[in-house]
Every structure is written in structure tokens, then in C-alpha cells.
């Protein structure tokens, strides 16, 4: 069964073009004209991925993205006419998985869609099954995380990032390797993506996000998951 994509854009011609090209590329497509409608369709249509325009009247893309993230892990790819670093970080910060600036080539967008839809190789392929310390428990098979006995929801990308770091058992993982493992082979230079996602991860699992004890930065190299002594 092909993946379901929800296209959110206030421009009818863009929705038409996206429906035609995505359908012909083998996806099922539904549309929303506004942020509000997108929230409605998120419940009724249950998409596997959302392509979200930033610049819409009423509820803008960023706000829609944040609201969706409150109740859903669905991959969100932001599409926007603006192309500044600040906008990109804002979009990722709002919970988006990826960011594509308009106008874009269809092949590039399809690659981004595939990357957003893919899950990093799971535990079955040799990763760890679980991790536990006094205040953090991770169940990789059930994709569940508990911090101080409270359940915490991670987005798929955050979860995959964490799993990849834990799988390396305390050894530093270079930026490029992390990006390719979690987003896909077309990635490698988007270190700002890592910065934003690592921040999110720290806020969710670290007792003190400003002084992390699990997810550590390795200057100029990448990131490392610090294994507690004796585990």
C-alpha cells in the first residue's frame, strides 16, 4: 500500500501540480488549503507524511507544525519560498523533519519525501534492544522512552538519532554518519539539522538539558552517547 501524503498549501496551482506529480510517482494524495484544515485532515485522513507550506493566511505553517507535533509524530516536510538559515532553523525547531525551499526540482522533493518516510534500520538489524539507567529507560523495539518513570514521546527522527547514538556505545559518531543514518544517503552537510534535533532530544531526555549527561557534543567531530559506568 502506497504512502499517503497530505499537501498543505493555499495556492491551488501548486496543489494541482503536487497532486499530479505525487500521484504519478505512486503516492496517495489529499489536500488542505489552510493550517486549520490540515489539522482536521491529520485526524480524518491519517497521512503518512505532510508537505506543509509556511506562508499561508490564517494559521501559518509554523504554528500548524507546532500544533501537529503536540499530538502526532507524522513526518513533516516544510516547503517555503524563503531561503534563509534562520527560517530553516525556525521550521526545524517547530518540529519539522526537513525543509525544502521553493521552487524545487521534483526529484529533489521525492528524495526528501523518501528520506522523511524511511525509518532507520531497526533493532532487528543488530542495534541494541534496550537501554536503562536510573533515570532513563529506552525500549528500542517498542519505540518507547521513559524519563524518571514518565513516558516521553520522541518523533521518529529524534528516536532514530538516539538509537544510532546508543548503538555506538559511547563512541563519537561523526555528523555526516549521523545524518546519513537518520535522514538518508543524500544528506551529510546539514549540521544545523543535527544541532536542532540534538537540542530537542536533550530537552526531552536530559535531567538538565543545559548540562547534558547522555547526549554529548564532540567538538568538530559529532555527538556521543555517554554510557553510565558499569552498563
Amino acid at each position: 500500500m502506497s504512502a499517503k501524503i497530505l499537501v498543505v498549501d493555499d495556492e491551488p496551482q501548486i496543489r494541482r501540480m503536487m497532486r499530479a506529480t505525487l500521484t504519478s510517482s505512486g503516492y496517495q494524495v489529499d489536500e488542505a488549503k489552510t493550517g486549520e484544515e490540515a489539522l482536521e485532515k491529520l485526524r480524518s485522513y491519517q497521512p503518512d507524511l505532510i508537505l506543509l507550506d509556511l506562508n499561508m493566511p490564517g494559521m501559518g505553517g509554523l504554528e500548524a507544525c507546532r500544533t501537529m507535533r503536540e499530538g502526532s509524530d507524522v513526518p513533516i516536510v516544510i516547503l517555503t519560498v524563503r531561503n534563509a538559515e534562520k527560517e530553516k532553523v525556525e521550521a526545524l525547531d517547530a518540529g519539522a523533519d526537513d525543509y525544502v525551499s521553493k521552487p524545487f526540482g521534483m526529484q529533489e522533493l521525492l528524495a526528501r519525501i523518501r528520506a522523511a518516510l524511511r525509518r532507520a534500520p531497526g533493532a532487528a538489524e543488530g542495534g541494541p534492544h534496550s537501554f536503562a539507567s536510573d533515570d532513563l529507560e529506552i525500549d528500542f523495539e517498542g519505540r518507547r522512552v521513559r524519563v524518571k518513570d514518565k513516558s516521553v514521546r520522541l518523533t521518529p527522527k529524534e528516536f532514530d538519532l538516539l538509537r544510532h547514538l546508543v548503538a555506538h556505545g559511547g563512541k563519537p559518531v561523526p555528523h555526516r554518519e549521523l545524518l546519513q543514518a537518520v535522514w538518508g544517503p543524500d544528506y551529510g552537510d546539514e549540521t544545523d539539522y543535527l544541532r536542532v534535533f540534538i537540542n530537542h532530544l536533550r530537552k526531552k531526555i536530559e535531567p538538565d538539558p543545559s548540562r547534558p549527561k547522555y547526549v554529548l557534543t564532540e567538538p568538530w567531530v559529532g555527538y556521543r552517547f555517554a554510557m553510565p559506568e558499569g552498563s
Partner: peptide, 9 residues
């Protein structure tokens, strides 16, 4: 850019 996006796509 909006019509360009449709054209380019």
C-alpha cells in the same frame, strides 16, 4: 516564486 514552483515542479 509561487507560479515558478508549479512550473519547476
Amino acid at each position: 516564486k509561487t507560479p515558478l514552483t508549479s512550473i519547476k515542479g
